[in-house]
Simulated scan of single mutants.
Amino acid sequence: MGATQFLERPGGRLAYEVRGQGPLVICSPGLGDLRSTFDDLVEPLVAAGFTVAITDLRGHGESSAHWPSYTETDVASDLLGLAETLDAGPAVLLGNSYSAAAAVIAAANEPSLVAGLVLTGPFVRDQPASLVSAFGRWLITRRWIGRRVWNGYWARLFGPQKPADLARRRRLLAANLAEPGRFDAVRAMLRSGHHTADQALPDVTCPTLVVMGDADPDFSNPENEARYAAERIGGPAEVLIVRGAGHYPHAECPDCVAATAVRFLQTLCFNSPTTP
């Protein structure tokens, strides 16, 4: 991977790295996760002729730990700020979960900076909560036990097709979230809703690819959720359902997601590269 760089933002600094040369794709993970979630997706995108920037969320990974707020709109602003800093033309925003919602808001707010969206496991609207899920969410947001609950819950978000190095990823994530202030970001993001992203969907006019694992435990019906997002988006949208994948299809089945993402990216109307 490339060397870690930092982008100064109001309230903190974002860690990111860049590889490749060509049209810009910015990858951003879900809450309570690290930018390394995209490790297996970067190489196919770079090989296809794209510049790929992967960033840690505010409060996560190598980004600074203490920020004044952690809303999806804040993350959208961070993604747009990185796109402007890299100055490689309109970017494709590839966001997972919480970052998928932020990418939607970014595309709606600044369409001139966003050429397209790839949304994996997107949380773009509030989900009905059962008593069990509501209690689990409450536990995760508790200071005294939340981090341990999240570490266990995170591993269960993967479907049957788990990455071979899942145990290593889990150890790295647990160590990062144990650093002072980091789990505060997770707690804050979990407490915020997705109303802004839901309202922004019709204002997105760029092409969008929605990627959903059919075994995603965060949704009662993952396929319906993917189609809801695609149908509400104002621009052209398509859906990829990854069989046997959970909430992180880009990490669980990177070859499948990369093949569809590369084809999608090359159809966008902005100096699309040709596959070598």
Rank of each mutant, 00 (worst) to 15 (best):
S133C: 07
W150Q: 02
A197S: 10
S64G: 13
Q266A: 02
P222K: 01
P29K: 09
A115R: 15
L131V: 11
R191V: 00
M189F: 04
E84V: 12
Y248F: 14
N176C: 14
A100M: 09
D203A: 15
D184V: 14
A76S: 13
V204N: 02
R147K: 08
V210Q: 05
N109W: 08
L31D: 01
I233R: 03
P202V: 11
A134R: 15
E43A: 15
D214P: 02
G181S: 05
N221H: 10
S130P: 06
A245C: 10
G152F: 08
A134Q: 14
T51S: 03
A167F: 03
Q266P: 00
L79G: 10
G116E: 12
L240K: 04
G61H: 05
H247N: 06
N151H: 12
A91F: 03
R170S: 13
G95M: 11
C27I: 01
T51P: 02
A188Y: 06
P128H: 12
L268M: 02
L80Y: 07
R35V: 00
L86E: 02
Y228W: 13
D255Q: 14
N271T: 09
V114Q: 06
N221K: 08
D255E: 14
A175W: 06
R156T: 14
L79T: 09
T51C: 01
V211L: 11
D39V: 13
Q127A: 12
A108Q: 03
D33G: 01
Y16V: 01
A83Q: 10
V262K: 04
A100T: 07
R137D: 05
M212A: 12
V52C: 00
S77M: 09
A155F: 03
R19Y: 05
K162I: 00
S99C: 12
P249H: 11
G59H: 02
R147N: 04
S112H: 08
V104F: 07
P160C: 02
P111Y: 10
N96Y: 07
T208E: 09
L79I: 11
L80R: 11
E179I: 06
R182I: 03
L177K: 12
N151F: 08
Y16D: 01
G121E: 04
A230Y: 07
Q199I: 07
R182V: 02
S36D: 13
A245M: 08
S192M: 13
A237S: 15
A259G: 12
R182C: 02
A48H: 10
P90S: 09
R58T: 01
P29L: 06
G32H: 05
G213F: 09
N271Y: 07
V104A: 04
C253W: 00
T55M: 15
N224H: 12
E223N: 01
V211Y: 06
T267N: 13
Q5I: 00
V52Y: 04
R168I: 08
D74Y: 08
T51M: 01
G59I: 02
